[in-house]
Design a binder for these strands. Structure first.
Length: 589
RNA sequence: GGCGCUGUAGCUCAGUUGGUUAGAGCGCCGCCCUGUCACGGCGGAGGUCGUGGGUUCGAGCCCCAUCAGCGUCGCCA
């Protein structure tokens, strides 16, 4: 607070009689003709200031409007008995104005700044400075600040060093699409903005820093989602001579510290699931553990079934996955049709439902299901009378995937996803390889610096798809907060992975030469992790959209509606960079 | 690129089966009001019903296209 100025949230009854100076915005004005009250708001709170008619500033106060900016000097006085406002921290007192200075006038704002009533998001983003004045964004961004500060404090206390890495980096072929920056000094060459500081933090381990962290900005040129922005912030961590358990301990303790420091919440130890368990029980590798509704495989009960759909799926080695819908027996056929449509959007070919109502069992496939099968499904899904069970039959991966997404859908419909609950977990033991959908060949499921599970290098030759990675994800309420791994630190192993990726030695030299060379100069074993700050802040704030915890976010098509970026640039700027646009003048493509 | 939803006053919304001059609350403007705090009272202004086309005697409402936004799938090593 500047010398002599008092915050608008500071004054209490004990300050009676003191002369104070307040600065802030007109949150509200109540004009009684012979007496004017103004609620003055700053980042500290709201104070009622009073203009008496005999005072020279009274006439000016008659013309004050929402969001005008004032400096006020006056005397703190207790409010008359019976007029205190218990809803206001400063509600015992008011400031009788002696001096009013109007520092600036405001246009009539396009939406109400003094309330958190919903407003069209386009408008909020266009007038973000007004939106940020509102209490929701003030609260969210201040909470976010405290999260980031708690993280820095925590990692500092555990002897991590924050080191900045460049924003102008080198484009690498795999992963997300890069944002490119043309080089003026090197015509035809480009920097890439970092997707993450991955290789640089590993090089910092090779450089002997031992424990590194960074609040790192990352950019990925992919399509946006409610939980995804093209630029985002990670707490990026790397450590030397560590095991997977060491990293998990550091990161889990960190989250526990942050939750305690910022929210006052003591988190229990995080649940640990293997990838295979997560898929089998929840159908996803980022399960929402705020609720149960675990999946079950009921294929065994349908051996020899006459039902064509099930028979062909089982014949082809697929799965039939059951999901309980609590209270679902009361749904209408129409409701089930709508659910089936939802499942189809998740990739299902269809859905069979069974409703265990008090007056009997109904099903979309009742002709084909025996009493014994209905009972077996009910038992497998732990369904009670009044529940429904949804069945998804398909190739194993698809059936579980759809069931997992439908589990979240059912969780929403049954209000099982409490926004104030925090269910953290670790997912471990990911497969090292997955089949590339285009080529059909095995490719690393994660980034190519991940180390296989201990003692599994030999599987690379014998049974590569069985290899597991020393890779781990931290998951909160169904959101992936981040992932990490123990890295490869032997240059020959790193080369082998690149080779498997189909890179020739010349490719490796061109793209990763600096990195493999660094590994050859005594790279210590190391590993680490990165967590998405935006998602953490979003969940800590109880928000469902990442834009609510970012001061100046992009909209779904990557536009900043306030400054109107991206934009065209003067021709000369392009010439300096040796660039020429291929976009026709009318903007068509 | 696919699918779904949304678009009516400055804001948030209502608008019946297609039928007279498109409404409400808040905000805005003016007047009144000395204890309010979502102050109150009286009066007033304010509309390309996203845009274009079509069907119809008649369209905010139906059809087609298009724009913008949101959600989602693909995508995000």
């Amino acid at each position: 607070m500047e010398k002599g100025r008092t915050g608008c949230g500071a004054l209490r009854a004990a300050d009676e009689g003191s002369v104070v100076e307040l600065c802030g915005w007109v949150n509200r004005r109540r004009d009684h003709g012979g007496l004017i009250f103004v609620d003055l708001r700053d980042n500290d709170g709201v104070t009622q200031v009073v203009f008496d008619p005999q005072h020279p500033s009274f006439q000016a106060a008659e013309h004050l409007r929402h969001e005008d900016v004032l400096r006020v000097r006056g005397t703190v006085r207790r409010r008359p008995a019976g007029t205190e406002n218990p809803k206001l921290a400063t509600g015992e007192i008011e400031v009788g104005v002696d001096e009013l200075e109007i520092l600036n006038r405001a246009q009539v704002p396009p939406f109400a700044v003094n309330s958190d009533d919903p407003v069209d998001e386009n408008l909020r983003l266009e007038y973000r400075y007004l939106d940020l004045r509102r209490s929701r964004m003030q609260r969210n961004l201040r909470l976010r600040h405290r999260i980031v500060k708690a993280m820095r404090d925590y990692f500092d206390s555990r002897d991590f060093v924050e080191i900045e890495t460049p924003m102008l980096m080198k484009s690498t072929p795999e992963g997300a699409r890069d944002y490119l920056v043309p080089s003026r000094l090197h015509p035809g060459s480009f920097y890439a903005l970092p997707q993450s500081p991955q290789m640089l933090k590993q090089i910092l381990m090779i450089a002997g820093f031992g424990r590194y962290m960074q609040i790192a900005r990352c950019m990925r040129d992919e399509d946006l989602r409610a939980d995804r922005q093209p630029e985002f912030t990670q707490v990026d961590v790397e450590m030397s001579f560590c095991t997977q358990d060491d990293v998990l301990e550091i990161m889990e303790s960190g989250m526990r510290y942050v939750w305690k420091a910022v929210l006052g919440v003591e988190l229990p130890p995080f649940a640990r699931l293997t990838y295979d368990e997560a898929i089998a029980r929840y159908g996803v590798d980022k399960p929402d553990l705020r609720f149960g509704l675990e999946l079950s495989d009921v294929g065994a009960h349908f051996a020899g079934t006459e039902f064509g759909v099930f028979a062909s799926v089982l014949g082809a080695g697929g799965s039939i996955v059951a999901l309980r819908y609590p209270g679902g027996a009361s749904l209408s056929r129409r409701d089930f049709d709508a659910l089936t449509e939802t499942a189809k959007q998740f990739g299902a070919k269809g859905m069979v439902w069974v409703a265990y109502a008090a007056d009997g069992v109904k099903s979309s496939a009742s002709k084909f299901l025996s009493e014994a099968q209905l009972a077996a499904v009910r038992a497998a899904a732990n369904a009670e009378e009044g529940d429904a069970v949804l069945l998804f039959a398909d190739a194993r991966e698809l059936a579980y995937g759809v069931a997992g997404k439908m589990r979240n859908e059912v969780g929403d419909r049954c209000s099982l996803r409490d926004p104030r609950a925090f269910a953290f977990c670790w997912v471990l033991g990911f497969p090292y390889l997955e089949l590339d959908e285009e080529t059909g060949k095995p490719a690393p499921a994660h980034h190519p610096f991940t180390a296989p599970a201990e003692g599994q290098w030999e599987l690379m030759e014998s049974d590569p798809m069985q290899m597991r990675a020393q890779h781990y994800d931290m998951v909160l309420n169904g959101y992936e907060l981040g992932s990490g791994s123990i890295r490869i630190h032997k240059p020959e192993q790193q080369r082998k992975i690149f080779e498997m990726l189909g890179l020739s030695p010349a490719d490796v030299e061109h793209r990763f030469g600096f990195f493999v060379r660094a590994l050859e100069y005594g790279a210590p074993p190391h590993g680490g992790m990165a967590l998405g700050i935006d998602r953490i802040a979003m969940l800590a704030c109880g928000e469902e959209n990442i834009r609510e915890v970012i001061a100046f976010p992009k909209n779904q098509v990557g536009r900043d509606l306030m400054m109107e970026a991206p934009s065209t640039v003067p021709e000369q700027l392009l010439r300096d960079l040796y660039l020429r646009s291929t976009v026709p003048a009318d903007g068509s493509r």
